[in-house]
Design a protein around this nucleic acid. Sequence first.
DNA 1: ATTTACATACATTCGTGTATGTATGCAAAT
DNA 2: ATTTGCATACATACACGAATGTATGTAAAT
Lengths: 205, 205
Amino acid sequence: MVRRTKAEAEQTRSLILDTAEKVFSEKGVSRTSLADIAQAAGLTRGAIYWHFANKVDLFEAMLERIELPIESLQADIAEQADPLTALRDFWVRAFHEVVDDEQVRCVLSIMFHKCEYVDEMSVLLHRRDHTCCSLVEVMTQAFEKARRQGLLAAGVEPGLAALALRNFVLGTVSDWLFAPQHYDLKSLAEPLLELLLRGLRAQPR
Amino acid sequence: MVRRTKAEAEQTRSLILDTAEKVFSEKGVSRTSLADIAQAAGLTRGAIYWHFANKVDLFEAMLERIELPIESLQADIAEQADPLTALRDFWVRAFHEVVDDEQVRCVLSIMFHKCEYVDEMSVLLHRRDHTCCSLVEVMTQAFEKARRQGLLAAGVEPGLAALALRNFVLGTVSDWLFAPQHYDLKSLAEPLLELLLRGLRAQPR
DNA sequence: ATTTACATACATTCGTGTATGTATGCAAAT
DNA sequence: ATTTGCATACATACACGAATGTATGTAAAT
C-alpha cells in the first residue's frame, strides 16, 4: 500500500476503529496489542501510529463514536405529556438499539466487561462518571415533573426513583451483554421497564 | 526471610491474597505484575510462585475467598412467611455488607470494574454466569411462592420479576462501587429495594 | 538428610515507541 | 503541460523495558 488520497486515509482510520472494536471485544483491551489490531485490519502498526498517538488515544477515539443521547431524553421528557411513559419509551428504544446495532453492542460490551477502570483510563472514568450523573439528574427532573402532574405515586422521592431506574437500566444492559443468549432483550425490554415503573405511577381511583 | 513453619507459610499465603486484593483494585488486574504484589507484600516473586502457579491461579484463589450466600437466600425464602420481604431483607443485608466489609467491597470492585471478562479468565466467566443464573432461579421461586400466597401483584410474572430484581441489584452494586462517594448506600439500601418491590406487592383493598 | 519455604539470578518473550524508508498525491513554479 | 518540491500515508526496522517462567541457591524445620 502506498500514498492514498485524503478520503482513503479517513477510510483506513475508520477501518482501524472498526477493527479495534472487534478485537477489543474479543480479547479485552489490555490483552490486545496494536499489532493484533493492525494485523486484523490488514495493516501494520505504522498505520495505527500515524492516525493515533498510542493505544489509549485509539481507545478514546473509539469511544467518541458512540454516545448516549441524553439531550434527546431531556427533550422527550419536556415534550411528552407523561414523563414516566417518555422514560419508558426512551429506554425501550435504547434497549432495542443495543440489540440491533452491532457497533453499539460491541462498544458497550467493551465498556462493561472488556476493560479496566483504572487511572490510566482517566477519560473513560470521567466519561462514565459524567454519564451516570447526567442520567440521574435528567431522570430526577422527569420524576419531579410527574409528581407535579400528579402522575407519581405518593411517597416516591424523585431522586431515589431516578437512582433506582439508572441502576436498573445499566444493570440490565450490563447483565444482558454478559450473556445475551440467556434471554431476548428486545421482546422483554418493555415488560421489564413496565414492571419497574408500575410501582411508581400514581394509582387511579 | 527463610523457611517458616507450616502455619507461617499459610499466613504468607493469606498475606499474598490480601495484598493482591488491594493492588488489583488499585491498578487493575492486567496492569499489576506479580512483582507489584510481591513488593507490596514485602516478599519476592519467589514466594508467590511457591504458593500459586501464576497470576490467573492467584486471581482465582482470591475469588474463592468470597462468595454470594445463595443457599442462605434460599433458606430465608423457605422459612419466612413473606418471600418478598425475605428478598428485600436479604439484599439490604448484602448491600450493608458491601459497605461495611472492605474485603467484599474490594473484591467486588475488582470483579465489576478492574478486570476483563475474556477467554483467559474462564473460571471468572463461569463463576459469574453461574451466580447470575442461580440468582434468577432462586428469586423466581420466591416470586412464585409469593404468588401462591396471594402476595404478588396481579399480572407480574415471577421469572420476569426475578430478572428485573437481579439486574437492579447487580446494577446498584456495580454503579455504587464505581463512585461510592456519590451517595450513602447503607442508608438508601432499604428505600431503594422498597421502591422496587412496592410495584410487585399485591395491593390491599 | 531431606524437604520446605522462600530469595535470587537468568533467559526469553512480548509490546511499545520511535526512527527511518518509500511511494504517492498535490501544488506551485517554470 | 511538465517538472520540482514537499507533505502525506503508510511500511519496515530497531532499541528498549517490562513481565514472565524457570532454574538455582539457601537456611531452617522436620
